[in-house]
Nucleic acid binder design. Structure first.
Lengths: 168, 168
DNA sequence: TTGAACTTTCAGAAATTATTGAAAATTTAA
DNA sequence: TTAAATTTTCAATAATTTCTGAAAGTTCAA
């Protein structure tokens, strides 16, 4: 495959995958673009390469920064801002995990904790099933969350080394 | 919190979480409804409790079956079909993991394998960064995929037991 | 067979989400 | 200061996704 075609495919694939996982397609595409860029890119580079508006490029670049997946780079003697993505895949995975945990798992844990206190007749089948489901889910989320904490502290080699050895 | 309010909150929360993870909100809500239902529900039950159309209810119930998260139940002497969700959270997690792996990770692996064969001057910075990114990503996805295979074979107690012990 | 009960389909409508582009705000060199 | 360069905002618009509801399809008891 030619390089230009491969780039295009990579950006498209990453964008599609992103939207399947609830991430704005363009944000994922901008991320892909930065991942394969050997040098930091400007907003204009992103606009040109992905054919999107300035507003859109700006917004998605800022979102990537909020996800801690990209950073601003200032070049001496240049008014423009440039953007560079973290390139280490393990580090990217950790940052995404950390962010989703903070944005989605922690609030879920809080809701489930509240729901465990539901009032109702424990003899009632509906109440009984509700309680069991919420408790089962709460325990599972807590375990996942704890596992995630270890993952966030671990380095890649140790993590996969231990994991793949443990589960051989 | 009152039972009815708790039910409502649970369904809403599960629906929101679903859409954050790229799953149709209504499908997640139907799933939530089935998860807390002590008995299998009919299409009409779903329509009534979630206030959605017959077409919508039917479609999302079928999707849940395609995800292997719900099954049809036939009651003797009743023409209607009923639906019951798998209630064991560990089993649900495994089925979702299995399905997303099949739908998303396997195709991604294929694309990355193709992209590794990109033609281009290895001295070119763009080609070099592209190759490194794609290779790093490919290796990472392979490891994740392998870990997932173990997870899919494991049972919950063993999985969390080993994992939480290994990473203490 | 027939027809009532039930399920599925799908074109059009509605709702949601993403994008544009121009104006406003900000920054910085001179 | 000034004004040019750049970034940010956001109302309007577009694109995408989801939902509705009625018609078509299927099943089954009699």
């Amino acid at each position: 495959m030619e390089f230009e075609k491969a780039k295009e495919t990579f950006i498209q694939t990453w964008g599609t995958l992103g939207s399947e996982w609830g991430i704005n397609r363009t944000m994922a595409q901008v991320h892909a673009l930065l991942l394969i860029a050997p040098e930091p890119l400007s907003t204009d580079d992103v606009m040109e390469q992905l054919r999107v508006s300035r507003g859109n490029a700006n917004m998605n670049l800022r979102d990537l920064i909020n996800w801690n997946l990209a950073e601003r780079v200032i070049k001496a003697g240049d008014r423009k801002e440039y953007f560079r993505a973290e390139k280490d895949i393990w580090e990217i995975a950790r940052r995404i995990a950390k962010e989703r945990k903070r944005r989605e798992i922690e609030p879920l844990k809080d809701v489930l904790k509240e729901l465990r206190k539901v009032k109702g007749d424990k003899k009632d089948a509906g109440v009984k099933q509700f309680t069991e489901t919420v408790e089962g889910l709460g325990d599972f989320v807590d375990k996942m969350d704890k596992s995630m904490d270890y993952l966030l502290k671990a380095d890649e080699h140790w993590f996969f080394g231990t994991l793949l050895k443990a589960f051989k």
